[in-house]
Structures are given as structure tokens and as C-alpha cells.
Design a protein around this nucleic acid. Structure first.
Lengths: 191, 191
DNA sequence: CTCTTTTTGGCACCAGGTATTAAAGGTTAT
DNA sequence: ATAACCTTTAATACCTGGTGCCAAAAAGAG
């Protein structure tokens, strides 16, 4: 008995739709050389929804993630903000931030939290990072909650630049420290 | 003459579908109190595709961005890589990277490209950023293509650290410059 | 009242399916 | 061999969310 063909086909079908979820059943018949009914039985057994449902699911997912894209605006949640004085933000290290091999956060994510906060704490229409001097004291790991604290050292209303110092901690341990020089647009202005 | 109702309705229709692209024509008739044929004429005039096409477009967009999610692993496309010597990467500034007000890229994205490249160029099992000294020479703007070039200055096989210098250009202009100190795991190893 | 624009209705048709029933084919056990 | 079983294919009715086309009704505008 050639029982394999079915399971093989199921695997192939899964793989094909994984590679390209936009395939119709009709296109699948061409690739797998079986009738359209067989394809449909297979999808039924594998609990794979029809093309239109797949598209809808993908669209919904992307719609949700677009909604949560303001999370891209500022990295980390701001817990406290005293403009031109200090600020605190929280950032939790999750899968997409770490090297999969080591579970250690990629430096630029830790930097992004600090940089976002340094910019946010400046009370100005436009604030841009001019330069920075940073140290990754110890690696941050998957699941760790990073607390970044920013202090404005010189608000420098005259020079158009501000110095901001940021320290990031996991618990008691410091993981990151940075000195940022931030350009500010003009004098000061309300947020 | 009440010519307005039509244009008003067109605006409302656009707004409704902007808020919720998952509406069928039938659901729109309920909201706008006109026949389904009118809705369809309106969509025709406004060049708004049918529900299924909208979903498909959204799915395709999200699929593309999922495909480029390994872009989350390394920020920017690596164009050239000579391990322990040098590397080049390309990163195009798009909507999600800029301050919406000014169209200027957030510093941490430009940093991320440079940092990713500095880490990638190190030929070691594990490479982590230890510290960095960076300058944002001029702002990078929406749509600009940033070319980052990294040079390993001291491979430092003995000390477990490497110094990498990165310069990022838009055309002929330098937008970013950074000196990175990268921890490397042990001696050297194949990638 | 006439002319034009806008709105509505009806009908045929399409893609990409679901759901169901039935038949044909090979496999296996008895 | 024959019955029992699994797999595959076929055929048919039906569904959603439309398009395309034509005609008629309604609503202004002049």
C-alpha cells in the first residue's frame, strides 16, 4: 500500500502554502497533480482555511500591527517625564530583540530605548541626536526589563544643544550608560 | 441644487473605509443609507477596489514586510562583507523610520544599521557591542539611501576585542560616523 | 416642461470556495 | 474470491462579494 503519498502530499501542501499563501486550490492541483477535491480534503484535514480566509487573516494581523506601530515611534514605555529635567522608560527584551543563538539583546535596541528617551526629554519642537558616547556595561537578556533613566545635564538654551545622560538598569545592575548631545530647534517651546 | 450629498458621501465613504477597510458594500449601505448600486458607483469613481482586493493588497504588503523581517535581524541589506576586514550595507529610510513632523530619521535607526554592520563584520561565534562613540553628522531624510561602510581597525585576536569604524553616506555626503568596540567570543572561528 | 445628473433595480456572470452524496480504485483481512 | 476499508475523483447545489451592463425612476437645473 502506498500510504505515504497522502502524508507526503500533506507535507508538500503545507510547505507550498507556507512559501506562498496566495495559492488557490486550482493552482495547487497543478503543483501536486491531484484533483481539486483531494486538495480540499487535504486542507480540511490539515485545518488550512481557504485562500480568502487566509488573506483576511493576514490583512487583520497587519492591520493590528499597524495600529501598534506608534510603538515604533518611541522605543519603550515612558513611565515618567519631566521635560528638560529627567525621564524614565521601560523596555522589555523580547524574542525579536535578541540574537537567537545567545538570547542576548542586540545593542541597537538598548541604544534605541536610551536614544528615544534622550530625545523625548528635551522640551523642543524638534530634537535630534547630534552625537553620543555609549557603553554597554553588561549584556541584556531575553525577558529582562530595562529601566532607562535620563538626566538633562545642561539645557543649554543658548547654544542650541543639550547634554543628556542616560543610565539603563536591569534590577540593580547597570547594563548601559550613554552621554547624548541633542540638537534642539530654537530656544524652548511648549510640547 | 443639492450636489453636495454626492461629494459628501464620497468623503464619508473614504473616511469609513479608511477607518475600517474590512467593510463590505452591504455594510456600507447601512451606514450611508443609499442603495448598494450607489455604493458601487461611488467606489468606481473613487477607484476604491472591492473588499477582497483590499484584503489581498493588505496581505501582500504585510507579506512583503514579513519577508523583510530578517531585516529585523540585521538592519539594512549587506552588499559586501569581508570578514574581519570590511563591510558595506544599504538602508533606505522609509516612513516608519522618521519623525513624522520633520521627515528626519530617528537616530537609533541610523545607529542600528551601523551597529548591525559592525557586529556582522566580526568573524566570530558571538560578537557584542561593548561601547561606541558616534556622531550624527547631518540628518538623514525620508527616502534617502544610506550606505554604511565598516572597517575593522584592530582585529585584536589576543584581547577579545575589535575596533570597528563605520561611516554612513547618502550619496557623497557623510551622515554618520562611529567608532565601535566589539567584544568577540574567543579566538577566531568560522562564520 | 425638458434636459441632465443621480440613484436605483434587475439580471447574468465570475472566482473561489463549502457541503454533500456518490462512484471508482486499490489494499487488506478473512 | 469476497467483503470491508481507505483514498481519490466526480457531480451537483449553494454561498459570498462582488463586476458589467441596461433600463427605469427620481431629483434637480434651466
Amino acid at each position: 500500500m502506498e500510504r505515504l503519498p497522502k502524508r507526503q502530499r500533506h507535507q508538500q501542501l503545507s510547505r507550498l502554502l507556507d512559501e506562498n499563501p496566495f495559492l488557490t486550490d486550482r493552482e495547487l492541483t497543478r503543483q501536486l497533480k491531484v484533483s481539486i477535491q483531494t486538495i480540499r480534503l487535504d486542507r480540511l484535514e490539515l485545518a488550512i482555511p481557504e485562500l480568502r480566509e487566509r488573506l483576511k487573516l493576514m490583512a487583520e494581523r497587519s492591520y493590528d500591527s499597524v495600529r501598534s506601530l506608534p510603538l515604533h515611534e518611541v522605543i519603550g514605555d515612558i513611565l515618567d517625564l519631566q521635560l528638560d529635567k529627567s525621564g524614565i522608560s521601560l523596555f522589555e527584551i523580547s524574542d525579536e530583540h535578541v540574537f537567537s543563538r545567545s538570547g542576548i539583546a542586540r545593542g541597537h535596541h538598548v541604544f534605541a530605548q536610551a536614544n528615544s528617551l534622550a530625545v523625548a526629554v528635551i522640551n523642543d519642537e524638534i530634537a535630534l541626536t547630534a552625537s553620543a558616547d555609549i557603553r554597554f556595561v553588561r549584556p541584556a537578556r531575553l525577558g529582562e526589563k530595562c529601566i532607562a533613566k535620563a538626566y538633562v545635564r545642561t539645557s543649554g538654551e543658548l547654544k542650541g544643544k543639550a547634554k543628556v545622560e542616560v543610565f539603563t538598569y536591569v534590577g540593580e545592575e547597570m547594563v548601559f550608560q550613554g552621554n547624548f548631545i541633542i540638537y534642539r530647534s530654537a530656544g524652548e517651546s511648549k510640547s
